[in-house]
């Protein structure tokens, strides 16, 4: 099996998933009624008229989560190949990766201490 043959089904699945979803949404558009009105087109705000724009500011905590995610997820990409080769690398690989994990845990402890993991607003 060449790499192309291994990955080719993904392209097919991608096309089929998109086409099927488009077909169903298209069928719904054909079958469903179409009676637009200003009330229907308004965003839902519990029955009252919408106040201001919906594109509001939101808590900075969510950006903190995104930053943390990037740090830890990039780390995961490094660990995948290493986890596969664990037995071949032996003790030297073990020590290197334990050190790497230790530095990350120090980072997590620092973030924790700084209060970036607290979601309560104060």
């Amino acid at each position: 099996m060449t790499p192309l043959q291994t990955y080719f089904p993904l392209a097919i699945a991608f096309i089929v998933a998109g086409a099927l979803a488009a077909l169903l949404v298209g069928a719904a558009a054909l079958l469903g009624p179409r009676r637009p009105s200003a009330v229907k087109a308004a965003p839902f705000e519990c029955g009252s008229d919408p106040i201001g724009s919906a594109r509001e500011r939101f808590g900075v905590k969510f950006y903190m989560v995104a930053l943390l995610f990037i740090v830890f997820d990039v780390e995961a990409v490094f660990v995948y190949p290493w986890a596969v080769l664990l037995r071949d690398l032996g003790w030297s690989g073990y020590i290197a990766m334990a050190f790497f994990a230790f530095t990350l845990v120090i980072g997590l402890a620092y973030v924790w201490k700084k209060g970036a993991l607290e979601m309560e607003t104060d």
């Binding site: 965003p43 919906a54 509001e56 905590k61 969510f62 995610f69 830890f72 997820d73 995961a76």
Partner: peptide
Amino acid sequence: ASNSKWALFGGVRAAAQVISYEIPAGV
């Protein structure tokens, strides 16, 4: 894209939740 406050809060919460839990799942 919904331009609704509920949808925006829900979407941001979902993003924060899913990317956070990606870390323990991945590890």
